[in-house]
């Protein structure tokens, strides 16, 4: 095994991969939330469609999109691999545990929260991204994503699933954001406070912004 493979497949290497892909996905969330928040201009989707068109057709963005898909796949695969390793490391479980005495429930539930987000991701991409890209591939034309949002978010169950997806994302980020820095060895009194504040703020702001989109459309605030 080369030193590089050895490093990446070691326990610390797997954590570093989890951390780097996680931070990359966090950077994607910033872009995704910013562009989708254009619907709050409430201008019949004009600004949103303008930027959506840019994201869907710009060759640089489309190339980066391949990286994004890879980022998701690696984060998911590495997460499943780590979860399996970690389960195997304790073949006989404790009869009595009191984990809340030493750690937060969401820090111990990253696999579960990640799985919930994955289920949401399948539903979410089959609503928008997959039909749009398939149509672009087949006809070269983009779908009217704004109109699709207005239609899809008329269903209360869809809105509930999206809000639950945002909740899972909130808890996942609340631990994941800070954890990513620790896995890279970035843990120091000088900046721990700043990372913590940034992590909590990010975990609240981004999922709230996302959750407001289906809610606003369902309640008719955005039309």
């Amino acid at each position: 095994m080369s030193w590089f493979t050895q490093a990446l497949t070691s326990s610390i290497g797997k954590k570093v991969i989890m951390s780097l892909t996680g931070l990359f996905l966090i950077s994607f969330l910033v872009i995704h939330a910013t562009i989708n928040a254009m619907i709050f201009y409430n201008d019949g989707g004009e600004t949103f469609t303008h930027w959506g068109h840019f994201m869907g057709t710009n060759p640089i963005i489309r190339t980066l999109e391949i990286g994004l898909v890879l980022g998701f796949l690696i984060h998911i695969a590495d997460g499943l691999w780590l979860t399996k390793n970690n389960n195997d490391a304790r073949p006989v479980k404790y009869a009595v545990t009191n984990p809340s005495a030493n750690s937060s429930w969401y820090s111990r539930s990253m696999g579960l929260l990640g799985t919930l987000i994955l289920i949401f991701l399948v539903i979410h991409t089959s609503h928008f991204w997959i039909p749009n890209r398939s149509n672009q591939f087949a006809t070269g034309e983009e779908l009217n994503l704004y109109q699709m949002m207005l239609d899809i978010f008329q269903n209360i169950w869809v809105v509930i699933i999206y809000v639950l997806g945002c909740f899972s994302l909130f808890w996942h980020l609340l631990h994941g954001f800070e954890s990513a820095f620790k896995s890279l060895g970035l843990y120091h009194l000088k900046y721990n406070g700043a990372i913590h504040v940034a992590g909590v703020a990010f975990s609240i702001v981004v999922p709230t912004l996302f959750a407001l989109m289906p809610i606003s459309i369902y309640l008719g605030w955005v039309y």
Partner: peptide, 21 residues
């Protein structure tokens, strides 16, 4: 680290349970 992995210990998820206990 290589020996730790070979022994079959799990991976850290930064829960801080270790230092708390």
């Amino acid at each position: 680290v290589a020996q730790m992995d070979a022994e079959g210990f799990g991976n850290c998820t930064n829960t801080h349970a270790c230092s708390a206990e």
